[in-house]
Amino acid sequence: MGKLLCNFAVGEKGRIVSVSGEGRVRRRLFDMGVTPGADVTLVKKAPLGDPLEVTIRGYQLTLRKAEAECVEMEAVK
């Protein structure tokens, strides 16, 4: 079991291994480019600690910690 995206620190980079969850949320993640193999950098957290802002596929995406919990990551070599 790799590290989950929701546990990333600001500035941390990684590659997506798998996306769990179901239905609408999972589909939305896929549609926004959150698919296995994509590189992700956690850019910042909102002032209250949640949601998160990440860079993925060359653009800025925001998602909540609860949704980032579905995203399993691995370290990039």
Binding site: R24, V25, R28, L29, M32, V34, P51, E53, Y59, Q60, L61, T62, L63, R64, E67
Partner: peptide
């Protein structure tokens, strides 16, 4: 509702 949203430039 999910909050998975683009932050446009």
């Amino acid at each position: 509702p999910p909050f998975i949203m683009e932050l446009p430039a």
